[in-house]
Computed example of a mutant assay.
Amino acid sequence: MEHISDHVVRTLWYIDLCAKQGQAVPYEGIDPFARRVPPRDVRRESAMNSLSWMFEESGRVVRRPDPVAAYLLGVGWITKDDQGFVRLTKVGRAVLAASGAEAAEMEAQDPEVADVALDPQDPLVYVQLTRRLQKAGQGLLVDAYFKAQSVSWLIESTNLRRVLISSRHRSSEQDRQQIAVALATVPNGSDLEVRHTNDPALHDRCVVSASGEVQLLGSSVNGVGKHLTAVITPSDDIAAVYRQKYEGLWQNAQVVTPQPVTA
C-alpha cells in the first residue's frame, strides 16, 4: 500500500498472527519487533523481499524508524486492554487485508474456507473441527451443552481457554459437577476457565476468537461426529452482535470452581 509504510503493515500482520495462535502481544513489544526482523533467506522469493529497502546492510535494523505502537493505537488500528496487551480492531484487520502482500502469502500457505460442513461419516471430522478452533487462539467457546469429556480434548488440541455454558437445562447441575472434577484432575485443567449462566440469551453456539472473529457452530462440540453440522463465519456486523452479546454474558456468569475428587 503506497500510503502505509511496509513495516507498519508487517507489524499488523505480526499482531494478528500471534492472536490467532493464542499469544497476546504486549504493547511494549510492538516497536522492538518493528525495528528488528529475523535473518532473511536470500533464496526465498516472497512478499517480505519487498521490505529490503527498510533495512541496513546487516538485514536486521530498520533505518530511522518512526514509532509504530503509538501510531497504531492513535489511529484506532489496535486496542490495548487493562493488562497492556493489544489486538487488532476491525479497522486494523481491514487495513491488513487491504495491504495484500503478507495476507496473500499466508492465504496461499494455509487457505481458510469461510464455511465448512462437518459430516459424521468423515473419519477426519474432529480434525476439521480442531483445526477451526485452533485458529481462534485463546478465545471463548460458547456451548450450552458442553460436557466434561471434552475438557481434555479442548486443552490438549486447541488454545481456547474460556468456555461459557448454560445452567438452565435439566442436567446442568450434574454437568457442572463433572466439569468441576475434570478441571481439577485433567492435566493443565487449571488453564481452562468455565463459567455458567442461566440467562436465556445464551442460545446459539459459537467461538469468539482472541482477535475478535466469530464462528457459528451448528451443534454442541459433543454432538460433532453424531450429526451433520456446519461451521459458519458470519458477516462483520452480525459477528459484532454475537461478540458483544456473549462477552457480556461471560462477564456476568458464575465460575465453575475446580473440585478435586474426595473419598
Results as ranks from 00 to 15, higher is better:
232 I>N: 09
140 L>C: 09
136 A>N: 02
40 R>D: 07
69 A>H: 01
116 V>Y: 02
188 N>T: 00
146 F>I: 06
25 V>M: 12
165 I>H: 02
59 G>I: 03
93 R>P: 03
163 V>W: 05
139 G>F: 01
176 R>H: 04
66 D>W: 01
19 A>P: 01
39 P>K: 02
255 V>C: 01
233 T>Q: 12
238 I>W: 04
182 A>N: 00
165 I>L: 09
45 E>R: 12
212 G>Q: 05
150 S>C: 08
160 L>H: 03
96 L>H: 10
125 V>G: 08
104 A>K: 07
81 D>W: 07
178 Q>G: 00
129 L>D: 01
18 C>Y: 02
23 Q>R: 10
88 L>G: 04
66 D>I: 02
6 D>H: 10
190 S>Y: 04
134 Q>K: 09
245 K>D: 08
11 T>A: 10
171 S>A: 12
148 A>H: 14
72 L>R: 04
84 G>W: 02
111 P>E: 09
13 W>A: 15
183 L>G: 00
213 E>T: 11
143 D>A: 05
256 V>R: 03
115 D>E: 12
59 G>M: 05
147 K>L: 13
54 M>L: 15
54 M>K: 04
169 H>A: 11
43 R>G: 14
74 G>C: 03
78 I>P: 01
120 P>V: 04
11 T>H: 09
7 H>N: 15
248 G>L: 02
237 D>G: 00
204 D>T: 13
201 A>R: 15
38 P>W: 06
188 N>K: 11
210 A>F: 00
99 S>E: 15
162 R>F: 09
52 S>T: 10
75 V>L: 00
260 P>N: 00
170 R>S: 11
51 L>I: 01
65 P>M: 12
146 F>Y: 12
74 G>V: 02
3 H>M: 08
163 V>E: 09
111 P>I: 04
167 S>L: 08
104 A>V: 02
226 K>Q: 13
117 A>D: 13
195 R>Y: 07
114 A>W: 02
118 L>R: 06
258 P>W: 01
10 R>V: 07
